[in-house]
Design a protein around this nucleic acid. Structure first.
Length: 662
RNA sequence: AGCGGGGUUGAGCAGCCAGGAGUGCUCGUCGGGCUCAUAACCCGAAGGUCCGAGGUUCAAAUCCUCGCCCCGCUACCA
């Protein structure tokens, strides 16, 4: 079998914050396992990444802190790079999208597809700040979300309701920098003809039978809903300048330049050899991403590559689902997050890699729990794997003076464990090759468990003829090689403790099935691979780094603003369905002196019509009206939240309709 | 409502793509062994309508069809 050529990428982390445990298992640790495996297999594999440093969040952070955007990116690039190195993610190159080479690449890419007619210019209206004298892309505009009414939201997405927004949709919008209200102004932008690629993409994706279901189905669904042309440029200073004469003040949109960063980083790694990967149909290009990135890597990016014409399309997309933290969704803005550098500060990287891989959210969201982390590490990694290695090496040290004995005869148990050794690289490798990292890890642990079983049944502490220790020493070597993709730091130490030549990462994967350690071999010095995680340590860690957060960040409401709210008691007179809406009722509410009002309320899944009619409820009477599902809603009724279901607030005894609440 | 993902022993998960006796892992319960090893390891027991109903098959947790329930995202909680 010839050598395979493989290009592995992990999603470029955004240089606007540190990495958390979800990032790590989403796109980086699995990619690292995959890459390390293929290196041992002797395949021609490279692992490419870098920080994504353009885009408005970085620019806004920079302006708010009064420093240049490059400085923000510098800081996070440094932190992120160190974190990756600490957890053993072994990129062949880790670049940044602010490098000269990348600017040149992105501009050339743009010009090429412009030349080929896949980019066109169009005049559009965009919000413009008359004071700052500039256009305001997404996060430069803030205002009230038109969907949920949350104040002070950004122009790209509402934090409260999660709705994707366009800057012009915000109500009462204002400039995020100076606070003045923007006006609409005409400007020219370049658009990518994504719509033209629907058919080709559909055909191409349909053929990718080896993709995971989530990626394939989701992408095909996206295409069938219709692809729209996308703006490639914006009016901003921070970004890759549009390389055309009459385009001052315009930069490439960050979604456009970011994936080109994969190519730039590869060129930076090898200025000559990069084409062997990117422009070679025999090279398998594998993108590791989180699920939020799926349409981007299955549709937009391939369309860009199709438009360019010289590049090989991705071969595989490995997309993970999300990781929850102690049963709750992580949220950086609410402070419910576990940063990678925090956990690496207290626990050795292989423990973290082990646990994250053991709960790898490949098929569905999974949950990170500190207690479970402690348990699994203690019982599986240490109790099974670490203990086998330790008891074998310590035994050889103490009873054989550190010398592996000569094997004598082989009984059934011996032959069986020899078979375990022979078959192990295949069992583990097969799973990694298929991107099934959790089963791969299980196969590794199962091999160690077989070792424990064998050792136990042979009872070498009672009598042993050499064969048992000979085989166990070789099985330990097998484990060292098989551990390397998952637990690179421990694998290296096991290799050293065995006193073997060379380095574990230089071994051939298939050689893990052999038994080259011979009688007479002297092992190195031995010490336990890991230390158990004590209750005290895990509790202290939780106290220090897991803060429930959320409530503490609540904004203070001015008394004046509170007084401006007109709360009233109303009586529900009539309840109607709204066609096509399963959660909404159309209510007529009697507010006494204020007359009757029409409200739209999302309570259908909790309350029946009968229970509602005649009921007294509390209403915000002077709220700005909104149109929901085609009906005007003139107010909002108050309810407490019970696990996501509304529970009405009602007066403690009967009061008059329209009674004021103070 | 659309899309996606789930429903497997007391709890939490693998197993399903590639059908082969309900197989496995962690925790918990009960009993035994061992003392090389980090209170570790090994053996055994109890505990299951593998969500339900059909179908394909010699054989279904696994493949197909229909249905029920849960979760996520989106649409529609002003």
């Amino acid at each position: 079998m010839g050598k395979e050529r493989i290009l592995v990428t992990s999603a470029l982390p955004y240089a606007n914050g540190p990495l958390h445990i979800g990032h790590a298992i989403g796109a980086y640790i699995p990619a690292d396992v995959y890459t390390r495996y293929h290196r041992l297999k002797g395949n021609d594999v490279i692992f490419i990444c870098g920080t994504d440093e353009h885009g408005t969040p970085i620019a806004v952070t920079a302006e708010q802190e009064g420093i240049p955007p490059k400085r923000v990116a510098d800081n996070y690039h440094k932190l992120i790079k160190k974190t990756f190195s600490d957890i053993g993610v072994s990129f062949d190159n880790f670049s940044r999208t602010t490098r000269e080479l990348h600017y040149k690449n992105s501009q050339e890419f743009f010009l090429r597809i412009l030349e080929k007619g896949f980019v066109y210019k169009k005049t559009v209206e965009r919000p413009y700040c008359p004071v700052c004298k500039r256009f305001l892309p997404d996060r430069y505009v803030r205002g009230t979300c038109p969907y949920c009414g949350s104040k002070d939201e950004r122009g790209d997405q509402c934090e409260r309701c999660g709705k994707q927004l366009e800057p012009h949709e915000l109500l009462d919008s204002y400039c995020a920098i100076c606070g003045s209200s923007p006006e609409q102004k005409k400007t020219e932008h370049w658009f990518f003809r994504l719509s033209e690629f629907s058919e080709r993409l559909n055909e191409w994706i349909s053929e990718q039978k080896h993709w995971p279901d989530n990626a394939r189905n989701f992408s095909l669904g996206w295409i069938s809903e219709g692809l729209e042309d996308r703006a490639i440029t914006r009016d901003m200073e921070w970004g890759v300048p549009v390389p055309l004469r009459n385009a001052e003040g315009k930069v490439l949109y960050v979604w456009f330049d970011a994936p080109i960063g994969y190519i730039s980083s590869t060129q930076e790694w090898n200025a000559k050899g990069w084409r062997d990967y990117w422009q070679n149909p025999d090279c398998k290009i594998v993108h590791f991403i989180g699920k939020d990135n799926i349409p981007f890597h299955t549709i937009i990016w391939p369309a860009m590559l199709m438009a360019h014409g010289d590049y090989t399309l991705p071969w595989q997309i490995s997309s993970n689902e999300y990781l929850n933290l102690e049963g709750r969704k992580m949220s950086t803005s609410r402070g419910w997050v576990l940063w990678l550098h925090d956990i690496l500060g207290e626990f050795s990287p292989d423990l973290v890699r082990y646990y994250l891989l053991s709960i790898n959210p490949a098929n569905h969201d999974s949950d990170f729990s500190l207690k479970e982390f402690q348990h699994r590490v203690n019982s599986e990694l240490i109790g099974t794997l670490g203990n086998f290695i330790n008891r074998v090496l310590v035994f050889i040290k103490q009873n054989r003076g550190g010398i592996v004995p000569e094997p004598v005869e082989f009984d059934d148990l011996d032959s069986r464990i020899l078979e375990t050794i022979r078959g192990a690289p295949g069992r583990v490798g097969r799973e990694i090759k298929e991107f099934r990292f959790q089963p791969a890890l299980n196969a590794l642990l199962a091999t160690a468990a077989e070792g424990n079983e064998y050792f136990q049944h042979k009872e070498p502490w009672k009598r042993e003829n050499g064969t048992t220790l000979y085989l166990c020493a070789n099985l330990t070597r097998t484990l060292a090689i098989l551990m390397h993709p998952f637990l690179p730091f421990s694998a290296r130490r096991v290799w050293e403790m065995l006193g073997l030549n060379g380095r574990v990462e230089e071994q051939e994967w298939v050689s893990a099935g052999e038994s080259p350690i011979e009688g007479g071999h002297k092992i190195g010095s031995v010490e336990p691979l890991y230390e158990k995680i004590e209750d005290k340590k895990i509790d202290a860690f939780g106290k220090k780094f897991l803060k429930p957060g959320s409530e503490s960040k609540m904004d203070i409401l001015k008394f004046e603003e509170f007084k401006g709210m007109d709360l009233r008691v109303g009586r529900i007179k009539r309840v109607e369905d709204i066609e096509g809406a399963d959660r909404l009722y159309l209510l007529r509410v009697d507010l006494g002196s204020l007359g009757e009002r029409q409200l739209v309320a999302g309570i259908k899944d909790t309350y029946k019509k009968k229970e509602l009619t005649g009921k007294e409820i509390v209403v915000v009477a002077n709220l700005e009206p909104a149109i929901i599902r085609g009906y005007k809603s003139e107010g909002m009724l108050l309810a407490a939240d019970l696990d996501g279901k509304p529970v009405f607030l009602v007066p403690e005894r009967e009061v008059k309709e329209g009674a004021k609440i103070r």
